[in-house]
Amino acid sequence: MRIPFTKMHGLGNDFVVLDARAQALPPINGDIAAALADRHTGIGCDQLVLIEPSGNADLKMRIFNHDGGEVEACGNAARAVGLLVGGELTIETLGGTIMARPDAAGIAVDMGEPRFDWDAIPLAYAMDTRAMPVGWDMLESPVAVNVGNPHAIFFVEDLSAVPLGQIGPVIEKDPIFPQGINVNVAQILSRDAIRLRVWERGAGLTRACGTGACSTAVGAMRRGLVDRKVTVSLPGGDLVIAWDEDTPERKGRITMTGPATIAYTGSFDWGAYA
């Protein structure tokens, strides 16, 4: 059985997208997702994205990280799906329902409202999520934010001085984060600009992370470090993040805007991975 796929990326964060709306696919588990994501023996990607029918939205999006673990949300994947399907969409995810629409700068995604309560991150026990009283080597007092999935954000003076590839996996698996954590290290450049690198839970260092950009921007706004609309620069490119507190119907919701790209299409033999 041959299965069609679309290879896409958002600022270099790349995906293998499978569309199961018109034709049902065999059940996909973490082992199959990890095999497809392998860059040596599979198609290769940061995340496998599965589009399915939804009874509550225009479609359902499931996301599997490179290691096969299923995660709640992915902003870059939402932009990719928005580009692939087209038009204004509501997208059901494990992290909640989000919306995507075409924009002059690419695809704009309504990421919903961030969550800050310690048990919504979740953390192992109660603490201040605006400045957690914890630290790892040179990184301390992170902001914790959940934007469909959990993030810890560290603000530093010099982003290039942080060995994120070494310290990221240590923080990701610390017992204080019972479901693991995405580790964001950010440098404030101005009131409307942030530089960011992300160690992504289950995927490692990534060229771009949409929920990481949203969480970092909101964390900086909570601390009064930036204005309500900022450009977040990642190794793969820029995302514009706005957190609206003024418009009643948009109050508290995050909008992420940026590009998405179709790289190529193809098909694979299901039996080679099942």
Score class of each variant (00 low, 15 high):
3 I>V: 15
3 I>H: 01
11 L>W: 04
14 D>L: 03
20 A>R: 05
23 Q>E: 11
31 D>M: 12
32 I>Q: 02
33 A>S: 10
38 D>F: 07
49 V>K: 07
60 K>M: 04
60 K>W: 03
62 R>N: 06
66 H>F: 08
67 D>F: 00
70 E>A: 02
71 V>S: 08
72 E>K: 06
72 E>D: 09
75 G>S: 13
78 A>C: 04
89 L>K: 06
92 E>N: 07
92 E>H: 13
92 E>I: 13
94 L>A: 07
96 G>K: 07
101 R>I: 09
105 A>S: 13
105 A>I: 02
105 A>V: 06
107 I>F: 09
108 A>F: 04
112 G>D: 01
114 P>S: 06
115 R>N: 13
116 F>V: 12
116 F>K: 09
117 D>Q: 15
117 D>L: 15
123 L>R: 07
124 A>H: 11
124 A>V: 12
126 A>C: 12
130 R>G: 05
132 M>I: 14
135 G>M: 11
139 L>P: 08
140 E>W: 13
140 E>T: 08
141 S>Q: 11
142 P>N: 02
145 V>E: 02
147 V>Y: 09
149 N>R: 04
157 E>C: 00
158 D>H: 11
161 A>E: 11
164 L>Y: 08
169 P>I: 14
171 I>V: 15
177 F>W: 11
178 P>E: 15
179 Q>D: 13
182 N>C: 05
183 V>H: 04
187 Q>I: 04
188 I>S: 10
193 A>N: 00
195 R>S: 14
204 G>L: 07
208 A>V: 03
212 G>H: 09
212 G>D: 02
213 A>F: 11
215 S>V: 01
217 A>I: 11
221 M>H: 06
222 R>P: 10
225 L>P: 05
229 K>G: 03
231 T>I: 09
234 L>C: 03
236 G>V: 11
237 G>S: 14
237 G>T: 05
242 A>I: 03
242 A>N: 13
243 W>P: 00
244 D>I: 05
246 D>Y: 09
256 M>F: 11
260 A>L: 08
260 A>Y: 03
263 A>V: 12
265 T>W: 05
270 W>V: 09
270 W>C: 07
272 A>V: 01
273 Y>K: 05
